[in-house]
Simulated scan of single mutants.
Amino acid sequence: MRRGAAWTGDVVAQPVRGELAPMQIRLAQELMADQLHRALNLPELAAQFGMSPAGFRKAFLQSVGMTPQRWHLRRRIVRSAALLHDDDLTLGEIAGQCGFADRQHYTKAFRRILGVTPGYWRRRIRMGTLRVGDALKCS
Rank of each mutant, 00 (worst) to 15 (best):
Val64Thr: 07
Ser52Leu: 10
Ala54Pro: 01
Arg75Cys: 05
Pro53Gln: 06
His85Asp: 02
His72Thr: 07
Leu45Gln: 11
Leu45Asn: 09
His85Gln: 12
Arg74Cys: 12
Leu84Met: 12
Ala81Gln: 01
Gly55Phe: 02
Asp86Trp: 10
Arg70Leu: 08
Gln48Met: 05
Leu84Cys: 15
Ser63Tyr: 09
Leu83Phe: 10
Gln48Pro: 00
Gly65Arg: 03
Gly55Lys: 09
Arg76Gln: 08
His72Gln: 11
Ala82Cys: 11
Leu83Trp: 08
Gly65Leu: 01
Ala46Thr: 04
Ser80Asn: 03
Leu45Pro: 11
Gln62Asn: 11
Thr67Arg: 07
Ser63Met: 07
Trp71Glu: 03
Gln62Ser: 13
Ser63Gln: 07
Gln48Ile: 00
His72Val: 10
Pro68Met: 06
Asp86Cys: 05
Ala54Tyr: 04
Pro68Tyr: 04
Ala82Trp: 14
Gly55Arg: 08
Trp71Met: 01
Arg79Glu: 02
Gly65Glu: 03
Arg57Ile: 00
Ser63Lys: 09
Leu84Asn: 05
Ser63Ala: 12
Met51Arg: 15
Val64Ala: 02
Ala47Gly: 05
Leu84Ser: 11
Arg75Asp: 03
Ser80Cys: 09
Phe60Asn: 06
Met66Pro: 03
Gly55His: 04
Ala54Met: 05
Met66Val: 10
Gln69Pro: 00
His85Ser: 10
Gln48Tyr: 09
Ala47Tyr: 01
Thr67Gln: 07
Pro68Ser: 03
Lys58Gly: 07
Ser52Arg: 05
Arg76Leu: 05
Met51Lys: 14
Arg74Ala: 13
Gln69His: 13
Glu44Pro: 00
Val78Ile: 15
Ser80Lys: 01
Ala82Pro: 05
Lys58Ala: 15
His85Ala: 09
Ser63His: 09
Ala46Lys: 11
Trp71Thr: 04
Val78Tyr: 00
Ser63Gly: 06
His85Met: 06
Gln62Gly: 00
Ser52Ala: 12
Leu73Glu: 14
Leu73Asn: 04
Ile77His: 02
Gln62Leu: 14
Pro53Tyr: 03
Leu83Glu: 15
Arg74Phe: 14
Met66Gly: 00
Leu84Arg: 03
Leu45Trp: 13
Arg74Gln: 15
His85Pro: 00
Val78Phe: 01
Ile77Leu: 07
Gln48Glu: 08
Phe56Pro: 07
Gln62Met: 11
Ile77Trp: 04
Ser80Gly: 14
Gly50Tyr: 13
Lys58Gln: 15
His85Val: 03
Gln62Tyr: 14
Gly50Phe: 13
